[in-house]
Design a protein around this nucleic acid. Structure first.
Length: 507
RNA sequence: GGCCCGUUCGUCUAGGGGUUAGGACGCCAGGUUUUCAUCCUGGUAGCAGCGGUUCGAAUCCGCUACGGGCUACCA
């Protein structure tokens, strides 16, 4: 019988979730939903030293914002809990003991200081110390020490770790669902710690045990885990649980927009883009890191952008709803090489999703920004304004930059435009136009344009010489939507008032 | 250093023995907008290098170079 697909996203609560982590969650989610399976959230908090308060809640909120809601996990219930590894602590020792009993693992009594010393010595000789089949017999462990001494140390409560005894000269070959055949020789691998002296398992043990217990069918994780895949495979084998063990897929990393290495928080700070989904306040330093949500990105845009970073459906389609992504997603189409992140393209995606929204929707999103400035516009009027300026915007907050003059008369006028377009007779012409405007019957864009055109034709004035000055009077600069539309939206009184004010102020 | 993974326009990618090597972002130009932005049209630009296999290689193989990851009682 085919097992139900079950995948997990398993972050550590050591800080805010990185956008690379969000992408890993996304690909897991897409894969699960594509196959009618389950998507779980497991919190891997086995390192008490690196625990950061608030990080877990941040992870959960980030997933929710992106619409990647787990079927099971911390905060979401489920039958395979607890889903926080710290709460599963008692389970792991049993597995570690079984490994010892069957000769696949051993106790090691070397202190962290002793090992540190060995590493330093090796470094001095331009070598790298490795706890492995070549060195383990010369170190303090249950392989090198007599059984009596091991018993004695154990009984006296001396602290120890449990290490995996890496077998000699075995070829571990695995078919990675993204990379294809990957192989390792165990002679190159070291004896990893599985169980720490504080009684907690390391990632390797906890990960394998939990994936087994939670019936995980596919492990989809970042490429940084590829080197430990043979260890994990051997662990399943040694634990006698390899029959239904998961298949592996290793995702390419997200790289810096420029320069070397993977994308880091620093890059965002330096180049002015968020690296995290949500705003984060470091509980220790109080330092803030910007988030996509607070920067004004729509979750659909963020998810769409992330989906295409390292994956492509093979068509020329660029915009996808989450439903389309689920339908199209395929691990074999994930790219193998690392992807440089392009903040410009992220903005482009947001522009697209903003343009897709109706003026009503945008007006609702814009309203809080206006309220904060003490402006309480009529909602219907606001929708009209938004409709005329939205195509110039990438973010909701751009609506203010593009349309502030609808709510506040300009305080100053663009100096360059004055120099270029404000001629000696401009004031005179604008006064004539003000008088004209006062006589117009229906004050709407089409009619204003009509009457204005007739007037201009009669006077034989060129449009260019008055259009820009009027715009300057109304807006303060030389950009914006159609001038008559602005006049219509502003209303007759405001329009004429602003023109007359400009006549007074300029020249 | 060792091990593993990778390499198509500046960037994200399609293409997996015979293609004018396709699309998107960016950039540039033209058109529209009597402004600016949008929008439309066009353009720019790429198979890392060298060997091999083959009638034929971006595509398969090898080497080199370059990039990335791992090499903790971190995940």
């Amino acid at each position: 019988m085919e097992r139900k697909v079950r995948v997990r996203f398993a972050p550590s609560p050591t800080g805010p979730l990185h956008m690379g982590g969000v992408r890993t969650a996304l690909f897991n989610y897409l894969f699960a939903k594509k196959h009618g399976g389950d998507f779980l959230l497991r919190i891997e908090d086995t390192d008490q030293n690196r625990f950061v308060p608030g990080a877990e809640a941040y992870i959960i909120e980030s997933l929710k914002w992106c619409g990647l809601v787990p079927d099971e996990g911390v905060g979401f219930g489920g039958d395979f809990g607890p889903y926080r590894q710290s709460e599963r602590k008692p389970m792991y020792k049993r597995y570690a003991d079984s490994l010892i009993d069957n000769g696949f693992a051993y106790y090691a009594f070397d202190t962290a200081e002793e090992l540190d010393e060995l590493r330093k010595e090796a470094e001095a000789r331009k070598q790298v110390f490795s706890y492995d089949l070549h060195t383990r017999n010369g170190l303090k462990n249950s392989l090198s020490l007599s059984p009596e001494e091991v018993q004695e140390r154990l009984q006296s409560g001396q602290s120890y770790v449990i290490r995996f005894k890496m077998p000699e000269n075995r070829e571990i070959v695995e078919e990675d669902l993204i990379r294809g055949r990957v192989s390792f020789n165990t002679n190159q691998l070291d004896d990893k710690v599985l169980f720490k002296s504080d009684g907690m398992p390391t990632y390797h043990l906890a990960n394998v045990v939990d994936d087994h217990l939670m019936l995980i069918t596919h492990v989809i994780r970042g490429e940084e885990w590829l080197p430990s895949m043979p260890l994990h495979i051997l662990l399943y084998e040694s634990l006698g649980i390899s029959e239904n063990r998961p298949r592996f897929s290793h995702l390419p990393l997200i790289l810096k927009p420029e320069g070397k290495g993977k994308l880091s928080k620093r890059d965002g700070d330096k180049m002015g883009f968020p690296v995290f989904p949500l705003l984060w306040k470091d509980p220790e330093t109080g330092e803030f890191s910007r988030g996509y949500r607070e920067d004004g990105y729509f979750p659909e845009a963020f998810v769409n952008m992330l989906a295409l970073l390292g994956w492509s459906p093979g068509t020329e389609q660029e915009f996808f709803s989450i439903g389309e992504l689920i339908g199209l997603f395929d691990l074999s189409r994930v790219v193998k090489s690392g992807a440089r992140f392009d903040p410009e393209k992220a903005k482009w995606f947001n522009r697209h999703y903003l343009q897709q929204k109706s003026p009503d929707e945008l007006a609702v999103l814009f309203l809080p920004i206006l309220n904060e400035k003490g402006i309480n516009p009529d909602l219907q009027q606001l929708q009209l304004i938004v409709g005329s300026i939205k195509e110039r915007c990438e973010f909701v907050k751009d609506l203010w930059d593009q349309g502030h003059y609808f709510f506040q008369a300009p305080e100053s006028y663009d100096e360059k435009t004055i120099q270029k377009k404000w001629k000696p007779d401009t004031n005179e012409k604008l006064e004539a136009i003000s008088e004209l405007f006062e006589t117009i019957g229906d004050w709407d864009a089409a009619n204003i344009k009509e009457v204005f055109s007739v007037f201009m034709a009669e006077k034989e004035w060129g449009f260019g010489v008055v259009m820009v000055p009027i715009r300057l009077a109304l807006v303060g600069s030389s950009s914006g939507p159609d001038l008559f539309e602005i006049c219509g939206l502003l209303g007759r009184e405001e329009t004429v008032g602003r023109i007359r004010k400009a006549i007074k102020v300029i020249q």
